[in-house]
Design a protein around this nucleic acid. Structure first.
Lengths: 202, 202
DNA sequence: CTTGATAGGATACGACTGTATCCATTCGGG
DNA sequence: CCCGAATGGATACAGTCGTATCCTATCAAG
């Protein structure tokens, strides 16, 4: 059995242990020793696979981005065929909202990272690439949809996209803090998609 | 000079020092000794006026809520007279968005507290009262505005209010992370108020 | 069989944490 | 006057933190 595979597998296990701690007890509860305990290994092993804590934290953020990406592609695959403009938006925004236990935990971790990035420039660079990519992607789609006559001409595609993403982020916050349920948040998103594209065909 | 005044004044100074650290270096950088240094007093003084760190943190959260409340009342007083429904919403949402250096710092601290509250139930109770109060207040106003014919009858007041508040929160996040400017965020808010109430009278 | 790299257990170091204690000063009411 | 309470300086304590070091194993290539 090749070494390299074991090596990457170990790193993945440690990163997952890190995210488990960050999402349930917060990023300030993440320490080298806690990760070791959570992963069931010794402190030395954590040190061995990650040169320092900074590298570990960045690995966690990268993994979070990869998970979000994976979920997006799953939704895209599941909704294959019906690639209506509205379907694309429902998929992307529905992926941002925490919709099951795991995505809720990931959203918690993401929020923790986001907050840390506000006062730690090293994390900020890694964390902002995904949101920007989403905004650009959706703006292109919505502009095309407008030219095809799918949305009213007096709508501003850039503003609409920025609004929907900011709305999804705000709703995510309220779901995480148990201010409202996932279903309530989804209804609010649908309400706006109805107004933008017209009622869903289903 | 009465003791009680000095006592409260000292507590206020220490709380402000705490918020200064939390908003510039994050909540994890807040320690008893750091607060003492920031306030220019000895560690013992911090211990003397706050029995433990938990009390100190709660004091910071309370102060943040009080500041937000103060800003809201300032806007309300400045816009006195023109209490159009749209004016009320513009005032409230404009207060949520960080509009100057100080409110930006406060928003940073608020975000830090919000994230901490996700994994620390003790803080959650204190931090959710203001958002809920805002939501209820605005819903009453918008329902009345709809009955007065100020907004279209096919709008759902509760959903609209929840959306605007979530939107303002999401936009605040993007402003704090320098994804967009305060002006850009304000324009997005205005865009939606225009659609909801019709263009501003000014 | 030996040698060097990979892997990991055990332990130590200095810095920092919240909290507690000991002690000196100040000051208003008896 | 003086005595207890309010105030605060200096220091100590037991943990935890990230990181570094020392020392074994294991194992593939020479």
């Amino acid at each position: 059995m090749p070494r390299q595979v074991d090596h990457d597998e170990r790193r993945r296990q440690l990163t997952e242990a890190l995210l488990r701690i960050a999402s349930t007890r917060g990023l300030q509860a993440v320490s080298m020793r806690e990760i070791a305990a959570e992963a069931g290994v010794s402190l030395r092993v954590v040190q061995y696979y990650f040169t320092n804590k900074q590298a570990l934290l960045e690995s966690g953020l990268t993994e979070l981005g990869a998970r979000m990406d994976r979920r997006l592609k799953q939704r895209a695959a599941a909704a294959a065929g019906e690639l209506t403009p509205r379907g694309v938006f429902a998929a992307v925004l529905g992926t941002i909202l925490p919709f099951d236990e795991q995505s809720k935990l990931d959203s918690m971790a993401w929020t923790a990272y986001y907050t840390a990035a506000l006062t730690d420039p090293a994390l900020a660079a890694v964390g902002l690439t995904l949101p920007n990519a989403l905004e650009n992607f959706l703006t292109v789609r919505l502009t095309a949809a407008q030219q095809a006559g799918d949305i009213a001409p007096d709508r501003d595609p850039r503003t609409e996209v920025a609004s929907l993403l900011a709305l999804a982020n705000g709703l995510t916050s309220s779901v995480l803090s148990r201010q409202r349920s996932h279903e309530a948040a989804t209804k609010i998103i649908d309400y706006h998609l109805d107004r933008l594209f017209g009622p869903a065909a289903v």
